[in-house]
């Protein structure tokens, strides 16, 4: 499989090379096109730094980040991002919030005015696939937390990015809503097969959704283990209660307990 994202021996220090915090140290990682990857690890292990590196928001002091065959030197523009906080703009309707990336990223930016109706239709279609049909006119504060996170996913996907970066997107939701959103993400991925990098603390989430799970060590972060998850797809929520699934989660748990102590 050809790598869409590759990190080669990447080190990243915040706040000056000499006395700053070392966030990542000699991290290497390869992610194939269309792969669903989860990155798990103890808190503060530099998972968010990984996201910033891949999207080109920061550049490493050492090593190289390559996305889609080119070394990352600036914003990559083929990525969509969503975070724990949906961060929708309260003065825009849900629809206009989702249109926001199209007002910014090329080539949509220059054809936005002329093709507005077409883009709105696209938003409506996307809203329907995440179960928010007819909610486009509502403002974010009129949506529940789970609905806001669905809208945030739509905003990350509206420009049809090849790469979806998710930084603990479901961490603030209640357990039932979280499971609903796992399924939403699963179905979106099954339908479109973009590449996903999901940063999470939730091992069930990682095992349920991902093809590959990378375990990171505590700061400075590096990948200490990689596990393939080969449960057949499409996966149903019920597999979360099967012994093989629980075993997988348990194994990862021990790994993380180990790196937290180290």
């Amino acid at each position: 499989m050809d790598a869409l994202v590759a990190l080669d021996d990447v080190s990243l220090t915040y706040g000056g090379a000499a006395d700053g915090t070392l966030a990542l140290d000699g991290t290497s990682l390869r992610i194939g096109g269309g792969e669903f990857v989860a990155v798990v690890g103890p808190s503060g292990c530099g998972k968010s730094s990984l996201m910033k590196l891949v999207t080109g928001l920061v550049r490493p002091q050492k090593g190289a980040v390559t996305v889609a065959g080119r070394e990352v030197t600036g914003p990559v523009k083929i990525a969509g991002m969503a975070f724990q906080n949906p961060s929708l703009l309260p003065w825009r309707t849900t629809r206009d919030n989702i249109l926001l990336p199209l007002e910014i990223v090329q080539p949509h930016r220059s054809r936005f005015r002329a093709h507005r109706a077409e883009y709105i239709a696209k938003v409506e279609a996307l809203l329907a696939t995440v179960g928010l049909a007819g909610c486009g006119d509502r403002f974010p504060w009129q949506l529940s937390g789970g609905m806001q996170q669905r809208a945030s996913l739509c905003r990350a996907l509206i420009h049809e990015p090849e790469l979806l970066m998710l930084d603990e997107p479901f961490a603030a939701l209640d357990a039932f809503t979280r499971e609903d959103l796992w399924c939403v993400l699963r179905d979106l991925w099954e339908a479109r097969r973009f590449t996903v990098i999901l940063v999470t603390h939730d091992l069930h989430e990682a095992v349920f959704l991902a093809d590959t799970i990378h375990v990171m060590s505590a700061r400075p972060g590096r990948i200490v283990a990689t596990r393939q998850v080969d449960f057949p797809r499409p996966r149903d929520l019920s597999i979360c209660y099967e012994p093989a699934f629980v075993e997988r989660v348990q194994e990862l748990r021990q790994y993380i307990a180990g790196v937290r102590l180290a």
Binding site: T55, L57, L100, I104
Partner: peptide, 26 residues
């Protein structure tokens, strides 16, 4: 919010875009 700035910057937004779309209304 820094996350929102990240979302937009990763799409190639210039500082001016972020001002007009987010900063000033906010």
């Amino acid at each position: 919010e820094p996350e929102l700035e990240d979302v937009l910057r990763a799409l190639g937004a210039r500082k001016m875009d972020i001002m007009v779309k987010v900063g000033i209304p906010r």
